[in-house]
Design a protein around this nucleic acid. Structure first.
Lengths: 217, 217
DNA sequence: CGGGGCCTTGATGCTGTTCAAATAGAGTGG
DNA sequence: CCACTCTATTTGAACAGCATCAAGGCCCCG
């Protein structure tokens, strides 16, 4: 039998559009959320685990004076809402109309503990890795590098030459620790350098992938 | 019987000077490291788990052009080296002469899987929480707020009115995403405002805790 | 007492912010 | 389908915070 570590690690390495429902069928509740609707709030009880079925989600944290930091963005298959404490440090909101599978941890403990552990542990590991990358980006990269890295990450997830941004410029700014104006300027620069090309405000394609990768460090 | 989640969460909430050796006695190897010695390197295999017995440790990541980001600092009782991938993203170095307990994950899988899972999972959760705090700090705080937050965290860990900084100004700068000069200026400012007081370069005490907390947001 | 590394302080410059305005898109109702 | 409106985004100009460059001072240790 596999230990949690081994199995979690195996699970982790298959990026998985596999949904929780495949694992513990019927145990989760599927819920719909409208654009900008809150899925859970800061300081709320963190007893639930969530998985994106359709749409996209952001987690964010608000400082008392209004400054906001985006924790991460989540797409179909991604698990979110895993936090070390009893209460959420971040809140989660729908970036667009979403379908979210919600699982109550406590109700699953007895019936499918092994599977849930695996899932939660895999999600926590993924979270940690992304948080570490995020720290490097925020601490030591320039605005240009931040935006290039961000676009590259988006493209890598979708695995195509281009993608659609499901979040606003403000969301991107709050993820990268920049202002909306700086993000806009960097995107303009990348377009002027013929590295990316926007068609509309939300859809782009990468014209020069190696140049983008170079800028991202 | 407790599930991994419950027990890990219970473990997590006792900040614990309890060492791994109490849990899986005799299974770890105790090693000594000199100041600035590398404990593990970036891109090395991440099959080991570490716990500080004595001294202090920093994890850091180097970009190819020499920029450095400190991941975190670790003190006696803290577990480090847990990373989501097979290879380390960060390296770890001794801040001063250290004693580190080293455990091989694979060798523990069969004999004490439950305990190790608990330990690793608890450490991962702690890591994640701290990484989230770090992201907020790096993304949305000013230099003054960063330094104030940093000092407050140090003091909270030791739980006294003051503490000794086990790391250099450069380490602090690389943790906060600042330069050494900015860190120095902020420390000078905090002293001038009679909020903290340094005795020597490494030891300080907090004169006005509430003011410090206010600055840290 | 002298050397060397670490830290502080000062002067200047650049990156990204702030404030302000123009433009473009998306959604709405006629 | 088009005109209108509202919001999101872009663009521009001035400013601020932090970085950079350059000395100078302190402390540790021989």
């Amino acid at each position: 039998m596999l230990t949690a570590i081994q199995s979690a690690s195996a699970f982790f390495h298959q990026p998985s559009a596999r949904l929780v429902s495949d694992l513990v069928s019927g145990m989760g509740v599927s819920m719909s959320f409208a654009r900008d609707e809150e899925i859970y709030g800061q300081d709320e009880d963190a007893d639930l685990v969530y998985q994106v079925v359709k749409g996209a989600v952001r987690t964010s944290r608000l400082m008392c004076d209004g400054r906001r930091q985006i924790g991460d963005f989540y797409y179909p298959g991604d698990v979110f809402g895993i936090e070390p404490d009893e209460e959420h440090l971040f809140s989660a909101e729908a970036l667009c109309d979403c379908v979210i599978l919600v699982l109550k941890r406590s109700s699953l403990r007895d019936t499918a503990a092994g599977e849930l552990d695996r899932l939660v542990y895999a999600a926590a590991r993924r979270e940690l890795k992304r948080a570490h990358e995020h720290v490097l980006l925020l601490g030591r990269k320039s605005a240009r590098e931040k935006v290039a890295t961000f676009l590259l990450n988006i493209v890598d997830r979708v695995s195509g030459g281009g993608a659609r941004l499901s979040m606003s410029r403000q969301d991107i700014a709050d993820y990268l620790g920049l202002t909306i104006e700086t993000v806009s300027r960097m995107l303009t620069q990348l377009q002027a350098s013929r590295i990316i090309e926007f068609v509309g405000l939300r859809d782009f394609k990468v014209v020069n992938p190696s140049a983008l990768a170079r800028l991202a460090e």
